[in-house]
Design a protein around this nucleic acid. Sequence first.
DNA 1: TTGACCCCGTTGCAAGTGCAACAATATGAT
DNA 2: ATCATATTGTTGCACTTGCAACGGGGTCAA
Lengths: 143, 143
Amino acid sequence: MPGFILEDFLAYQMAVLSNRLSDGFSRRYRDKFGISVPEWRLVAHLSQAAKISIREVYQQVEMDKSMASRAAARLVKAGYVSKRVNPADRRLVELSLTAKGRAMAAEIGPQALDFEAEVLACLPDGERDAFRKAIRILMEKCT
Amino acid sequence: MPGFILEDFLAYQMAVLSNRLSDGFSRRYRDKFGISVPEWRLVAHLSQAAKISIREVYQQVEMDKSMASRAAARLVKAGYVSKRVNPADRRLVELSLTAKGRAMAAEIGPQALDFEAEVLACLPDGERDAFRKAIRILMEKCT
DNA sequence: TTGACCCCGTTGCAAGTGCAACAATATGAT
DNA sequence: ATCATATTGTTGCACTTGCAACGGGGTCAA
């Protein structure tokens, strides 16, 4: 494999960086609220839309069906989310945040923005926007 | 959680993008060679250094100890890697590519570079270098 | 040489993950 | 009304993963 260096390989770099970011941020809420990364993602999505179904969760947030189902179950058990059957279509489920869930979201949200700002602070001033835009382009490209 | 949008959250974007890149590339060698992502990483690292130990694998490549051990075991079983005890220090293991392993590496390496080039092709010409540099900076920052 | 200590790789175990099968429900054509 | 088909969420299962414990080696001082 001539001239190939794993450390310079984009897919590898992204995997490493992604893990460090997710782990780094999850440490900030894991101990206090006892939720994992998939659970945090569900809550984050749920905080933008009063009532959503499991399907909306795993389609919009990148997540397997069963992962969304189990994350929801854990959040219900922990008292952050309530779940009821949608009366209009009884196949669907209506997930919504409880008061406890809203309180948690209200605390984690600003921490998320702080964390992101801390990370991005190490990029040169003029390049932050270009970097964010590049990420967006790549995400659309790789759909 | 006012004004927080998960889709715009860097850690989330990186996780999604990282998965898409790793999956996208792994599809190109999985069927033909039957190896997984951790195994590919071990091989990639091994192709730059004739003989390495398990420890060198998991320290240099971002990987758990047990993951490196098991990836090596699977690669040995598949005939891509040979493993023997280091006679100078019998705690250590010497991993090296077999002829079959070298052949695989010789085929996957160029494919990796092609894949990366395809992905990066969608970024504006002047911004590719800046993007790669930004990734490097963030990786060092988040160590 | 012995014993205390450290390092390496493997393995057991619990938790997480992806996939496929499943039951319950809805839809639509006949 | 009935039956075939599609959709939703859950669950079973095999596999992966991370952590901690372990056994086998090495090292160094007493």
